[in-house]
Design a protein around this nucleic acid. Structure first.
Lengths: 142, 142
DNA sequence: GCTTGAACCTACAGTTGCTGTAGCTTCTAT
DNA sequence: ATAGAAGCTACAGCAACTGTAGGTTCAAGC
């Protein structure tokens, strides 16, 4: 049996994060010692490792919840799992595209600034007026 | 003089967001009508446009605060402004690198899944075990 | 001048995914 | 037996907004 600290260390998680996952129902309520401390087994270790790895790959917690639910029905088709992964891939690709357009714009404004005084700094000029930009580079979240 | 709604519309901001910027001191407290409604002039319009455009380029609010402060000293050197932009560029590049490694991993696990049953879905297998991955793809925030 | 409805006001809760703190209790090693 | 590390709960805070409730004001049309 593992303490919460050991479980956290083994999975590269913080103790509070483990408790947070329990609070939002992503991790089950574990057994407790007589004194009230949490004790975990191998199944919980695996589940937490799954959660962490999915987070590292950028899956939102709600998607991870879906994946965990789906993996409880081993005989079903894995089409839904595929769909969740595809959705995540699309999200990642969209973010990359957005960031690349930001990168180009930032590089351009930095390279264009040959001034030395704030008064005619190209960076500020570009930030003041979106018309100075080549692309639209707007979007929801980064 | 512009109402908050007009100001928001002209800059592509939400009314609440404008009030939020005021609350955190990024926008100044504007004049008010006798009835207590906010009224804005051209300077505030420009300032908000600057903030929005900077946000669209991914600058955090604290960086924008720096830029606005710096632009109040037109005779100073623009080295600090350059530094803020460079910092943002580095942050964007780091994010792109991270996301590209996630993208590769996601593509790989999706393409490897030829199964039809959840029980032997490659996606779940990879998520269960980080050793299945090619790269480390870990990092702070996306 | 009056009415109506859109737009405004404040204040606060909720979002995502944690992280940090305070004040206390329990466990484990010596 | 005791000390200190690690655990417990509960709550506040981060970024950067967004949404809601319950009330007030503004501006246009008659």
């Amino acid at each position: 049996m593992l303490s919460i600290g050991t479980l956290a260390k083994r999975t590269g998680t913080k103790v509070q994060t483990v408790r947070y996952y329990e609070q939002i129902g992503l991790m089950p309520e574990p057994g407790r010692t007589d004194g009230g401390q949490r004790r975990y087994g191998a199944a919980e270790l695996d589940r937490l490792a799954f959660i962490r790895h999915s987070r590292d790959l950028g899956f939102p917690l709600e998607a991870i919840r879906e994946l965990l639910d789906l993996s409880d029905s081993p005989e079903k088709s894995c089409a839904q799992i595929d769909a969740v992964a595809q959705r995540q891939l699309k999200a990642v690709e969209a973010r990359i595209a957005r960031l690349q357009s930001l990168k180009a714009e930032l590089q351009r404004m930095i390279s264009e600034c040959h001034s030395d005084r704030v008064a005619d700094c190209r960076i500020l000029e570009v930030l003041r007026d979106h018309e100075e930009c080549l692309s639209d580079h707007k979007g929801p979240d980064l």
